[in-house]
């Protein structure tokens, strides 16, 4: 079992190497002068030269790569130009906000999309089926930032149900003592229901926005793979053996249909992590996405690089998790090797 896990971990290594190389290339092999870029638009030639030496840009590319990897290994992603603080510290502080939003969104999406997909496939041609197809096609067509704005307009401006889209907590609440960094969990741990309610209120609309966005591909894939599974010969055998519909649908069809759905989750994560940036901008959410946008606008490259790297590493880790989940579900994968 440990060997299995080790093997799976090993499969992530090429991806990690790729990620590190690409992020390095993105900063160093650029048209234009990286030092000038890092120094900012108003720097003097002398300051640029200093920065070049400080960044080690006067050395050869392989040397630069080695020191880049060394920095990464020691957790040094450089300092932000505008705030002067280390990028790692900032990202660490902001990551829980992004993660809380993304995971809640994904959780909502799965909770709605999977049952919807199953129902649509079981009752093919019914109203639920048509609804599912509509959701699937419309959902992938909605620009996530636009959905967010629409929801803000409806729930904040028209109905007044949601608070103003300005961050994780309103002005009257204070953050719960940090344990996980997730306000929902931390406030419950602190038995502070008031803060829990306040942070849930802030989180609800952005999380729904994320859910609407990721619902479509999950529902679509669940429906398609359920249809394929239901039409399979082993389902026919199960039916011919008189097994009950629940057994046939859940134990025989759905377990098999789950495999492609789990694969789709990888793609959904990719979309979600990207959508996260846009949603954070719409809701002034203090996560790593808005951090990256602020840096982008200020032409402050170190935070952007740190952001891309963090996102990529998180994504590689999530894919690894999905891979392991796949191994749990499918004995054919488990036995391999």
């Amino acid at each position: 079992m440990l060997r299995q896990i080790g093997k799976r971990l090993a499969t992530a290594i090429p991806s990690l190497i790729g990620v590190v190389v690409v992020t390095f290339l993105l900063t160093r092999v650029l048209p234009g002068d990286t030092a000038a870029y890092f120094a900012g638009p108003a720097a003097t030639p002398q300051a640029i030269a200093e920065i070049r030496a400080k960044l080690g840009l006067d050395r050869s590319l392989p040397e630069q790569f080695v020191s880049y990897v060394k920095d990464l290994a020691t957790g040094n992603l450089g300092n932000s130009l505008s705030t002067g603080r280390p990028v790692v510290t900032e990202i660490k502080a902001r990551l829980p906000a992004s993660a809380e939003l993304t995971f809640l969104g994904l959780f909502l999406a799965i909770a709605i999309a999977v049952p919807l997909g199953i129902l649509a496939a079981v009752k093919q041609g019914s109203i639920i089926d048509h609804a599912c197809r509509m959701v699937a096609t419309a959902g992938v067509s909605l620009p996530v930032f636009f959905t967010g704005l629409l929801l803000v307009y409806v729930f904040y401006f028209l109905l007044g149900w949601a608070p103003a889209p300005l961050g994780r907590l309103d002005a009257f609440s204070s953050a719960p003592p940090e344990v996980t960094g997730f306000y929902l969990i931390d406030s419950l741990l602190a038995r502070d229901l008031e803060t829990f309610r306040a942070s849930l209120a802030q989180l609800a609309v952005p999380a729904i926005t994320m859910a609407v966005f990721s619902l479509a591909p999950i529902a679509r894939m669940t429906r398609a793979s359920m249809l394929a599974a239901l039409a399979s010969e082993f389902v026919r055998t199960a039916k011919a053996s008189g097994l009950t519909p629940t057994t046939v649908i859940i134990r025989y069809a759905f377990r098999n249909a789950l495999l492609p759905v789990v694969t789709t989750l990888g793609m959904v994560f990719s979309f979600l992590l990207g959508a996260n940036v846009l949603v954070e901008k719409v809701f002034a959410w203090p996560g790593i996405g808005s951090y990256a946008i602020e840096a982008l606008i200020a032409s402050d490259f170190a935070p952007v690089q740190g952001f891309v790297l963090t996102m990529a590493i998180m994504y590689v880790a999530l894919n690894l998790l999905i891979d392991m989940l796949y191994g749990v579900i499918d004995p054919r994968v488990r036995m391999e090797g």
Binding site: S15, V19, V22, T27, S270, L273, A275, V277, F307
Partner: peptide
């Protein structure tokens, strides 16, 4: 395959942000 895998190792929109930020 390796090229595709390396690109796929990034969340795609995030990679696009990085590329545009770097290339100009």
């Amino acid at each position: 395959g390796r090229l595709a895998d390396t690109i796929m190792a990034f969340p795609l929109f995030v990679l696009a942000m990085g590329i545009v930020a770097a290339l100009g």
